[in-house]
Write a protein that binds this DNA or RNA. Structure first.
Length: 661
RNA sequence: GCCGCUUUAGCUCAGGGGUAGAGCACAUCAUUCGUAAUGAUGGGGCCGUAGGUUCAAAUCCUACAAGCGGCACCA
């Protein structure tokens, strides 16, 4: 055995496959310097055997090393992290010495930092903080890392009055190697997993965006901190482009488009419940009809169940105990009619509730009569109107409402049928989302939570069934440990809105508990009673949220089959009025949703107005068209028009407007 | 529910202790026009709600409500 030399040589393999030899303990910065001085200026971190490291970290053995610059995605993220954890944190501590730092991670496009302030700060204070950040950036302070033992690290933050940092260190599993980052000799330090930029001079363009409240460790029982959100980019140009893109995205906000396109509105007296206008309800119906056709050929039967149900059923189902804070409860009492008197003469003792879910009602239908295993699976669908008493702060346009209509169904089946039903459902969702034009769908498999009902064997089977179903449907998905419902695992389909917020739409949930609680049974082959399994499932989720997502995704320019007005017949002069009426009649006879614009306005004005209203087609008619029985067809977004025979144009539009299913 | 912000005409927004402003929209009149704004005139507001301060409040203060951005919760 050969004796270890004081400084053995190591081989470093670069991304292009080239190898170089260094003395053990070489740092990323030294490697960069040995390659090119320009590289040493630009490099900000290193990836050593796949792990991001600071440039000052020594490399002790043979390794794959990639040098990271800000021009890469991971470099940009490191820079954002430094802007949050170093620039923002130090600026805040300079301006508010008694502020207490919690955590400051990066997020899509930026970062945030959670901080406890003595007095509330407002968005105006952000400008001051941002100014201080700019001043600090100009100092180009170097960022210096030191390693500390647990006790030392705790001491350092105790001295600085940083209880949240102490908490993080105390909860950390390791005893040493706590990384503290300082900015030169400014006295500022922060605890961080790193890596960080070697100096503030690598910081690009940044902007603080807004302030919000956020709970420490994400738990509403904990102290609420102030969260400062910011964005950071390589330079001013990128920052500007991002801000512009945000502005554009805000124009797609479904609440704004809903008003502009006269689709729906909300008002104080019915907060969280949508008033659907004729045009909006046309979209709603078109979508509902589409799903109804899909379900019908997929072997579903449709039902309708009561809105108001006695709390006896909710107690039996478990909702009264577990879900009551989200329910609208109605006293089952005749109200007092005396003027100025109490609403109820006596304290109500009997209650009903607006249904927050359809499942218990569907079990009631299942329980009528005796079911045989030959009847299963029963796929019971309902466009169920549900009410949930959502927290005020949760409401958000159509995305989060208090009255919603789910494209809901419950599949009652045997355990052996779970797999095939789940596979069929995943295929159905895939087809529907493809029809809607959604590509960016995030699929989550939510696995068993700590508190759960049912044996591990049943959970193994259920989770595996869903996993296989997703695989067979060819869907990529991520697994979320502990996120499942207490009664079973679930699949969730998430879609993003215009500004990138993710909303859950479709879902499949396995339930072994409710059939038990509500005593649903079927007679098996063996002549004995058995429990069916219930699959709760929705493809769109709710019509409200899905339409909201559709509006944002299409920026209001809905596909033809969903457009509330598919075609406007616009005249050039009043000479063409009679002919325009004929054209309209033909369109309507072909089942198209068409309107007439005979107003005494210039055609430019009409085209502009209907284009802004996002009408997919305009049939322009003037004296010439009336004479020749043609129409000038203008498609939304198109620059010019085509002249077509009336019957051909109507037929073509009819063809194009056919729903995808 | 919690934190911060906002609330003025149908919409977007300016203003600010002393008779309420603009653009768009709307109405009327003129114009009959060939593919993204024709012109003129006019109507329209309890300045979110309720209290308070003041000779005087849309403006200052307080409370409440709703909306917006987050958090928590969730389809």
């Amino acid at each position: 055995m050969q004796s270890r030399s004081a400084s053995p040589e190591i081989t470093v393999t670069l991304p292009d496959g080239a190898t170089r030899t260094y003395t053990a303990g070489v740092t990323g910065m030294e490697i960069a310097q040995s390659i090119a001085p320009s590289l040493a200026k630009a490099v900000i971190a290193a990836r050593v055997d796949g792990v991001q490291r600071d440039l000052c970290d020594p490399i002790q053995q043979d390794a794959q090393v990639a040098l990271i610059k800000v021009d890469s995605d991971e470099g940009l993220e490191i820079m954002r992290h430094t802007v949050a954890a170093q620039l923002l944190a130090r600026a805040v501590k300079n301006l508010y010495p008694d502020a207490k730092l919690a955590i400051g991670p990066t997020i899509d496009n930026g970062f945030y930092y959670d901080i406890e302030f003595k007095a509330p700060i407002s968005s105006e204070d952000l400008e001051t903080i941002e100014k201080e950040m700019r001043r600090l950036k100009e100092t180009n302070a170097p960022i210096i890392k030191t390693l500390h033992s647990k006790a030392d690290a705790i001491k350092a933050f105790e001295d600085r009055g940083e209880p949240y940092k102490m908490d993080i260190i105390e909860r950390a599993p390791q005893d040493g190697d706590f990384q503290l980052y300082a900015q030169g000799d400014t006295g500022f330090i922060d605890l961080c997993r790193g890596p960080h930029l070697p100096s503030l001079k690598h910081v690009g363009a940044f902007k603080l965006m807004n302030v919000a409240g956020a709970y420490w460790r994400g738990d509403s029982k904990n102290q609420q901190l102030t969260r400062i959100y910011g964005t950071a980019w390589r330079d001013e140009k990128e920052l500007k482009a991002y801000l512009h893109q945000l502005e554009e995205a805000e124009k797609r906000d479904h609440r704004k488009l809903g008003r502009e396109m006269d689709l729906f509105h909300f008002q104080e007296e019915a907060q969280g419940s949508c008033f659907w206008h004729p045009k909006g309800f046309t979209v709603y119906h078109a979508l509902e009809d589409y799903i109804r056709r899909r379900l019908s050929v997929s072997g579903y039967v449709e039902v309708k169940t009561p809105q108001l149900i006695d709390n006896k059923l909710w107690e039996a189902s478990g909702h009264w105990g577990k879900y009551r804070e989200n329910m609208f409860v109605v006293p089952d009492v005749v109200p007092n009619t005396e003027e100025g008197g109490k609403v109820f003469k006596e304290e109500p003792t009997r209650f009903m509730a607006l249904k927050p879910m359809n499942c218990p009602a569907h079990v009631q239908i299942f329980r009528q009569g005796i079911k045989s295993y030959r009847d299963l699976p029963i796929r019971m669908a309902e466009f169920g109107c549900c009410h949930r008493n959502e927290a005020h702060g949760a409401l958000h346009g159509l995305m989060r409402v208090r009255q919603m209509t789910q494209d809901d169904a419950h599949i009652f089946c045997t355990e052996d049928q779970i797999m095939s039903e789940a596979v069929a459902f995943c295929a159905l969702v895939k087809d529907v989302y493809a029809d809607m034009g959604f590509e960016d769908v995030r699929v989550v498999l939510a696995l068993r939570p700590e508190m759960r009902a049912g044996s591990d064997e049943v959970w193994d089977k259920a989770e595996d069934g869903l996993r296989q179903a997703l695989t067979q449907a060819g869907l990529e998905f991520v697994e979320a440990e502990g996120e499942g419902a207490f009664y079973g695992p679930k699949i969730e389909y998430h879609i993003r809105d215009a500004i990138g917020r993710s909303w859950q739409c479709g879902t499949l949930q396995l339930d072994f508990v409710l059939p038990e609680r509500l005593d649903a049974t079927y007679i098996g082959e063996d002549g004995n009673r058995h429990r069916p399994v219930m699959l709760h499932r929705a493809v769109l989720g709710t019509l409200e949220r899905f339409i909201g997502i559709m509006i944002e995704s299409y920026a209001g320019k809905l596909p033809l089959w969903l457009s509330p007005v598919q075609c406007v017949v616009a005249t050039i002069t009043s000479e063409a009025d009679d002919y325009a009426r004929e054209v309209l009649a033909d369109l309507k006879a072909a089942g198209l949703r068409a309107e007439l614009d005979l107003r005494n306005e210039k055609i430019n004005y009409k085209v502009r107005e209907h284009s802004l209203a996002k009408v997919p087609f305009i049939f322009v008619v003037g004296a010439r068209e009336a004479e020749e029985k043609t129409v000038a067809v203008r498609e939304l977004g198109g620059k010019d028009q085509s002249f077509e025979k009336l019957d051909a144009a109507v037929q073509a539009l009819q063809e194009k407007s056919r729903p995808p299913f």
